[in-house]
């Protein structure tokens, strides 16, 4: 009896899908605005795992550029850009939450109905 225990692309994608769906659930079902931000971070991390996994398993052969071997790491570069945007997003998001708390003494997203009358 033997199991195939080697890890491949579908396993990483499955982990990323789980992370993404937990994040999705958190975004839909949390009252606290900071919890929503945390769930967003989970979703961005899942996307990063996908980018790196596709780069690792589908584009792992070096190419020849002017006599020098290079790996084409576009997935890694995209993941770095996602990290940059996520850092900017969490900074601005937390500043918004702090402003909201200062004005309303609450971080409940259900009470964010100032545009409704």
């Amino acid at each position: 009896m033997s199991f195939n225990l080697s890890v491949g692309l579908p396993h990483y994608l499955l982990v990323a899908a789980m992370l993404f769906c937990f994040g999705l659930y958190g975004v839909f079902s949390k009252k606290n605005a900071i919890a929503v931000l945390m769930s967003l971070e989970l979703m961005l991390n899942a996307v990063n795992i996908n980018l790196v996994a596709f780069n690792r398993f589908l584009f792992n052969k070096p190419i020849d550029v002017q006599g020098v071997k290079h790996y084409l790491l576009a997935g890694h570069v995209s993941a770095i850009f996602v990290i940059v945007v996520a850092a900017a997003e969490v900074a601005v998001g937390l500043a918004l939450v702090i402003t909201m708390y200062r004005n309303r003494l609450s971080t409940n997203v259900d009470e964010l109905d100032w545009l409704k009358w």
């Binding site: 899908a17 079902s29 606290n32």
Partner: peptide, 23 residues
């Protein structure tokens, strides 16, 4: 300090369906 909103059930259903689709 981290309560669920009243949409939590719908959120769970949406996340579960998304996961099933992905899988």
């Amino acid at each position: 300090s981290n309560p669920d909103s009243r949409n939590a059930v719908f959120g769970a259903i949406a996340a579960l369906l998304t996961f099933v689709t992905f899988a």
